[in-house]
Design a binder for these strands. Structure first.
Lengths: 105, 105
DNA sequence: GCTATGTGCAACTCTGGAGATGCATAAGGG
DNA sequence: CCCTTATGCATCTCCAGAGTTGCACATAGC
């Protein structure tokens, strides 16, 4: 997973309202209308956020009768976490190597 | 680490130019002026980005003579990764539990 | 001391995205 | 069959942030 692949995911996670939505969905599947009754934003705004979240694979739509419920998916989040951890460790490995060389003088 | 703490970090990571900066710094410490000679943006723009990155703890400034070099720090990234992974697993645990109940009927 | 170069600060433009509003459409429930 | 409710689409406003330019300041090197 490259930085170019990661950027859209981070853009999706950068919005507070989207975290509110994800947190709410973490309690159970819900439709845009249902979320709008809880969160202080309009249904249309939530629908847009859900589209963004679906785009990066964080949620998936489920048709239940005439409503569309959304479900959170943890897999993409875990995959992103793994990529982030790897990058962070790489940076710190470099610093450790430099420090080791410095001490070796 | 809560969602409120995570959001600024993701906002910092959502920008492509900042990833370019982080990648460049991953190769070795550098000043804003040095980075400006490599990347297709002005020094001031890079300085702003570095300020953002420093704010979330991804880089730290190092005065070397009259220039200010920046160094990437992996710790915050790894901590963020751990938080993300935990959240992702929580979501999937919930789904697994639901599925189990459904099959138990 | 003078000059080069590296930084810092301030103001400006401009685009993307978040949010709202209005309307059209579709599908349950009585 | 009608009404209610959920969704979809288009348009508008507004603001944060990315980027630039210009200038002032500080400091290493000669």
């Amino acid at each position: 997973m490259s930085a170019a692949t990661l950027a859209p995911m981070f853009a999706a996670l950068a919005d507070e309202t989207r975290w509110s939505i994800l947190t709410a969905l973490g309690e159970g599947d819900a439709s845009a209308s249902a979320l709008a009754q809880t969160l202080p934003v309009s249904r249309q705004a939530i629908a847009k956020h859900l589209a963004v979240l679906q785009e990066v694979g964080l949620v998936e739509p489920l048709r239940v009768g005439r409503e569309v419920r959304f479900r959170v998916i943890g897999a993409e989040l875990s995959a992103t976490a793994a990529a982030l951890d790897e990058i962070g460790r790489t940076w710190d490995r470099r610093l450790a190597a430099i420090k080791e060389i410095a001490e070796g003088l």
